[in-house]
Design a protein around this nucleic acid. Structure first.
Lengths: 142, 142
DNA sequence: TGATTTACGTCGCGGCACGACATATAATTG
DNA sequence: CAATTATATGTCGTGCCGCGACGTAAATCA
């Protein structure tokens, strides 16, 4: 039948590209908001994400290096540098694992928690604002 | 009243941090998928986003440098380097603006369009897969 | 026409993610 | 229990990309 290409994949029309592009645009704008909020309190975007991943880890508020890497979706040794910079700023503290002394558990300091709280409040508000829009775009893709 | 801090902001409990962190985690996993899909066809993630932003621009399939910068949420001169690399790979073509000769219009070549089509199909499928999960997390934040 | 604005481009820097490799501790196994 | 293997963190050097500062050309305005 009307198969134009070798693989029998669905034809993609202008509308499909526009929907996907609109989704990425909305996403980039949210991430941009987030980047600027982080910088406004003296953090890089990645440092902010690390603090959130620690405090927001399911069931705990302390994570190992490897766990943090998984939550941030980066390699473990990328986390090392990130944690070094956060430690230098006094926003997190390292503690060697008790049962397994290879592990390093990372905790927020009071100062780290305070910065994160401010950022989190701002992000909640922004997300409440854009969530309906994001949802609408996603439905256009389905 | 029970105001502990100077600013009368809402108290944030463990649950709020976990919700926001879960959202960012889901987002990072999607972006990671996207990064790997792009690399699998020989593109950097940013190059893929540029192609999508061009082909998915509302009502047109050709954009100026400045428009592209806005859609990607980066500075205009960050786009210049990106477009240079895409042009070198034969994925896009530049054309000087007709009415305003300062403008540069960027179009996809056939090869650029072909790569983008493959990536777009894969992304649609992935998004259909994770959209419900993303929606559920977002409702937990509202 | 001179001054200002707009659009694109160049240059060098810094942050961060990565691959390759190193070190320390734990677990396994013969 | 010594030797091996697996796991967790850390070091080093590289490359991509976004940015600020600045430059150039074309359009617009006074």
């Amino acid at each position: 039948m009307g198969a134009k290409s070798s693989k029998s994949r669905k034809r993609l029309g202008k509308k499909e590209y526009e929907s996907l592009s609109a989704f990425r645009y909305a996403l980039r704008r949210f991430l941009r908001f987030s980047e600027e909020a982080a910088e406004a309190v003296g953090l890089t975007p990645q440092q902010h994400q690390a603090l959130l991943a620690i405090k927001g880890f399911p069931g705990r508020e302390s994570v190992t290096n490897g766990e943090l890497a998984e939550r941030l979706q980066v390699r473990h040794h990328s986390v090392v540098g990130l944690v070094n910079r956060l430690e230098a700023q006094g926003l997190i503290a390292r503690a060697q694992g008790e049962s397994d002394r290879r592990e390093v558990y990372i905790n927020l300091t009071a100062r780290g928690a305070e910065l994160l709280e401010r950022l989190t409040a701002a992000h909640q508000e922004e997300l409440r604002h854009i969530a309906p829009q994001l949802g609408a775009i996603l439905e256009g893709i389905e």
